[in-house]
Simulated scan of single mutants.
Amino acid sequence: MNSGVTDTVQALESGLQHDGFRFVEAVTMRELLEAERPLADWTAFADSWNDLGPDNYLARHGRERRRRYAVYSAGPDGEIRREAHQPHYQSLDYNSLQGDIERWFEPIAANIGEGESLRRILAFCHGFFGALAPAISGWHIEVHQFRIEARPGQAGEPTPEGVHRDGVDYVLVLLIDRQNIVSGTTTIHSGDGRELGSFTLTTPLDAALVDDSRVFHGVTAVTPQDPILPAHRDVLVVTLRARDSSAPR
């Protein structure tokens, strides 16, 4: 890792430790992910958002979202392994809309899950967040591909549960694509509801780094800029939870 990248990482770590979150502009995030070489499969990676499955659980509430999901683990050896496909679970304490149920989503495609772009993103998360918690020997890592669709008269809701915590230790939100939408502003809040900051992911690779144990986050609804054209917001969300934590949150 060159000195410029090292300095950037250290500045982000310091900011996250101080504030509980950091917004990272695309140019900086690209520098971090491409420190060794370009992301050769990025086009195919981004195109995979056109093949996400429906979120049937959210559709029951009259909302539109498409997604795929995968679980990985990382141990003391640093190797990141994909685990068998399993449901996503959050308790009602963290998700008042869809908590206390096992939600099965279509798996992230094998070629995407083992592709260079995702593997590089996971390696960054493991290295960056792991440095903030060196006592943790292993991590449970969940990966979500999300597409939020907006239609005339029907806003898309990136966080339909409202301002919340995910019940993990750390979160990366990475913008993949943003087409014909307005708003989608991320807000960060303290436990008492006070807003600590806000920013909008507008350029592919814009990112949010969040200490989920300390702050809450939410994203405002998105609406079509041109009502006659398709409108969506594509993001990758990666969460890390200490593997020796007692139970799913």
Rank of each mutant, 00 (worst) to 15 (best):
N50V: 09
W42G: 01
R60M: 11
S96V: 15
H85L: 12
D93E: 14
A110F: 09
F124R: 08
A155I: 01
E106H: 09
D166M: 03
R165S: 08
R65F: 02
R147V: 05
C125D: 02
E64T: 12
W42H: 12
R120V: 07
A44C: 12
N95Q: 06
I101K: 11
A131M: 08
N111G: 04
E116T: 05
D41C: 08
R103H: 08
R147F: 01
I101L: 14
E149N: 07
R67P: 03
L92Q: 05
I136L: 06
A46P: 04
L97H: 04
S117I: 01
P152C: 15
G115V: 00
D166P: 07
I101Q: 15
G138A: 14
H88N: 14
F105T: 01
I136E: 12
E106N: 05
R60I: 04
V171P: 01
F128R: 06
E157R: 13
R82W: 03
P54I: 07
D51I: 08
V173C: 06
H144F: 14
H144P: 08
E114F: 08
P38W: 01
I148D: 00
D169G: 13
L122E: 05
A131H: 13
L174N: 05
P158M: 06
H85D: 15
A46G: 09
D41A: 07
F146E: 02
R165N: 03
L122N: 01
S117A: 12
P152N: 14
Y89H: 12
H164D: 11
D41R: 08
T159L: 07
P87A: 10
R60V: 05
W104T: 09
